[in-house]
Design a protein around this nucleic acid. Structure first.
Length: 711
DNA sequence: CTCTGGAGA
């Protein structure tokens, strides 16, 4: 079929392009997508849309897009770029029913959903028809969809089965400055795809500061700058460095409350515990020196992602009013992690307190450990934080560091995630995408060679890659599962050990946020509740017990509550389990169980786990502490573990560096299984001299003897 | 004795 043909969709006998026809209809007051006259609401929104700064740049943008495969848009907050530019592209014909689609990626699911919702209103269509979204667990689009908002990770998934992204005529990468892992991989991939798709267009949208880097990366793509619409924010620095940033932050918040004009406060801290402590400290401080005639009430709200939604909603409450008629009005302060930096916008914030720290992931390829470390933020991040004070009116930002350290010590940009992460999953994805030469893949910021080597090594040990570096059949299957390679391998191995049903439950439980809750005010009760699920062999089977108990109690929320189980995590585990189960079906894996009363019911499960986790094993030394196998890191079993019989060998899910080196989610294993299931890894020829090796030697000797013995 | 920022057909 001739894709360039001119069609007459208006019935007016014209021979113009579909885009021109659609424009004609639009001018006649008819929605070209529905054939119905535009609603009143459409015109109301249209008036507002036309006032957005981005509107003036429409012609310039379309001109640039027409003449260049890639265009970089630098747009500040409030410019309207995210909602308007995808629509402009659709109107220009880059999306047409049955012909091709405009995709717009977002780093976060809520963003993809809410923008799709907003844009479908603006276009006067039903969400899921012309405008849709795809995020994990929820695809809301259809055959007529021509504008699809999606998470960057979702587009990457799609690319695995559609390497040329044939569905899409135009791809908008929004929030590219956030440099998520998925966006970085997509950019490298899209650069390749563009060579084979001269018709394809890409719009890379980024906040200020780093647009040039994107331009350069995309072969000097033209830049369009769109101003934002925000209010000025006055910045204050401390004259000397603060020793204790939490204490300084609490002091500053109290100071603002006592001395500044009405307006809400946003304080950035690094994590849940720190935030809860600070909230208590602020409340106590204010209570201590309260003078109700001079200052109003102060409402303090914590905010972090693991907070239940109802508690998160509190941050949107109005600040408290005056306590008595004519008294001073109250104020609210939100003490938040980085979620409030990008994901969540709170209106009415006038004061921002920024101690200059956040928790960031760091990866050490030498010991293969990813951990979260409290680190100084970047200048870009500091700017983003201060901007939060000027959304509704002019504001103030108090930076609890010196101006000099802002200028001289902070990095310009936060290191992109790709330089701070394990690459095993990404490498598997890239291989599945057909990228064979990883070293020469055009990353915007190439990860350290050692990190890539570590990933290849891991995939090879798991059997996903052969010795030539090609994806094996197993590797292909692993790439289909939205799991880390180790867990993918566990799942794929589980039918061979007769326990895919149980392993699927465990893997699902491992893929969701912390299931066992332990509120500070009820630690003992929580520990007792958890003990009811404890399995003597370790945390993996304890998770399985909890899952089964949850199912037996009908997934009841009340049951979760009284057993200190996080019911949101359980719901999410059910979703994950369902999705993985579907994928297993597609991969033709059998769903089987060992008879519960059989002696090897639990052994089989632990063996299946070992089949993927054998590289994360620790050995108990004679000195009484554990050493990780091959990496020789001294570790302790995390106090949250149910394991208290100190098995000689144990496998663990994660390595956490906090007050000590901990291994978390731990299960005891037998040395025999290790040499039986992963002989290539526990091969004594390549094993560093250590106590673990001596133990293994004993296992091999025993094996040899039993093999020699005549039957 | 425990401290997880975001995200994933």
């Amino acid at each position: 079929m001739d894709r360039k043909r001119k069609v007459d969709i208006t019935g007016l006998g014209s021979t113009s392009t579909p885009a021109e026809d659609a424009a004609k209809k639009r001018n006649m007051g008819i929605n070209p997508f529905t054939g119905a006259p535009y609603s009143r609401k459409y015109y109301d929104i249209l008036e507002k849309r036309k006032k957005l700064p981005v509107h003036q740049f429409l012609d310039d943008l379309m001109d640039k897009v027409k003449n260049n495969q890639t265009v970089v848009v630098e747009g500040e907050t409030g410019s309207g770029k995210t909602t308007q530019i995808p629509q402009f592209l659709v109107e220009a014909g880059y999306g047409a029913i049955g012909e091709g689609c405009v995709a717009c990626t977002q780093p976060r699911r809520v963003a993809a959903m809410s923008i799709a919702n907003r844009v479908s209103d603006e276009m006067d269509v039903n969400l899921g028809d012309i405008v849709g979204y795809s995020i994990r667990f929820e695809i809301k689009n259809g055959p007529r969809t021509i504008l699809n908002f999606m998470t960057d990770g979702m587009l990457l998934r799609e690319a695995m089965n559609d390497p040329f992204l044939a569905k899409y005529k135009c791809i908008v990468l929004d929030e590219a400055h956030e440099r998520t892992l998925a966006t970085d991989v997509l950019m490298g991939l899209i650069k390749e795809v563009l060579k084979n798709r001269p018709d394809m267009r890409v719009v890379v949208m980024s906040a200020t500061l780093d647009a040039e880097k994107f331009q350069k990366y995309f072969d000097n793509a033209p830049l369009l700058k769109v101003p934002g619409r925000t209010f000025p924010v006055e910045i204050f620095y401390t004259p000397t460095p603060e020793r204790d940033y939490v204490e300084a932050a609490v002091r500053t918040v109290v100071q603002i409350h006592k001395c500044e004009d009405p307006g809400d406060v946003l304080l950035f801290l690094t994590g849940e515990v720190e935030i809860e402590d600070a909230c208590r400290a602020i409340r106590a401080e204010v209570e201590k020196s309260q003078d109700p005639t001079k200052e109003g009430e102060l409402a303090v709200y914590p905010l972090y992602s693991s907070l239940p939604p109802a508690a998160q909603q509190k941050i949107f409450r109005e600040a408290p009013g005056p306590k008595f008629p004519g008294g001073p009005v109250g104020r609210k302060v939100v003490v938040s992690t980085n979620v409030a930096e990008t994901s969540l916008t709170i209106d009415g914030i006038v004061y921002v307190v920024d101690p200059g720290f956040s928790k960031q992931k760091v990866y050490n390829p030498r010991i293969r450990v990813e951990s979260l470390l409290v680190s100084p933020i970047s200048r870009a991040s500091a700017q983003q934080r201060s901007g939060r004070a000027g959304r509704t009116r002019p504001g103030k930002c108090f930076r609890l560091y010196t101006e000099q350290s802002f200028k001289e010590e902070l990095l310009e940009q936060t290191y992109p995630e790709i330089l701070r992460s394990k690459m095993s999953n990404t490498v598997l994805t890239l291989l599945k995408l057909g990228v064979e030469d990883l070293v020469h893949f055009d990353f915007m910021d190439p990860p350290a060679p050692e990190t890539l080597m570590r990933a290849l090594e891991l995939l090879n040990y798991l059997g996903a890659l052969d010795d030539e570096g090609s994806l094996t059949d197993l590797g292909n299957k692993m790439s289909e599962l939205p799991l880390d390679p180790q867990l993918a391998k566990v799942l794929l191995a589980s039918p061979d050990y007769g326990c895919s049903n149980e392993v699927l439950s465990i893997v699902a439980m491992l893929s969701v946020p912390q299931v066992f809750m332990r509120p500070k005010e009820a630690q003992k009760a929580a520990d007792e509740a958890k003990a009811e699920f404890a399995h003597i062999d370790g945390d993996h089977l304890t998770l399985l017990n909890a899952y089964h108990a949850y199912k037996q109690n009908g997934g009841s929320k009340d049951w979760c509550f009284s057993n200190f189980i996080n019911s949101r995590s359980m719901v999410s585990a059910e979703n994950v389990r369902e999705q993985l189960g579907r994928l297993m079906g597609r991969l033709e894996l059998r769903m089987v169980s060992t008879e519960f009363t059989a002696r090897d019911y639990y052994t089989n499960i632990k063996k299946a786990l070992t089949a993927g986790m054998f590289m994360q094993v620790a050995h108990l030394e004679r000195s009484g502490h554990y050493l990780t196998v091959k990496d020789n890191q001294v570790v302790s079993i995390h106090p949250s573990s149910v394991l208290d019989n100190k098995p000689v060998w144990c496998m663990f899910e994660e390595f956490v560096l906090t007050s000590k080196n901990y291994i978390r989610t731990v299960t005891g294993v037998q040395a025999d299984w290790l040499v039986e299931i992963a002989p290539h890894y526990f091969d004594l020829e390549n094993f560093p001299e250590c106590e673990a090796k001596h133990d293994l030697e004993a296992v091999y000797r025993r094996k040899d003897k039993s093999q020699q013995r005549p039957k």
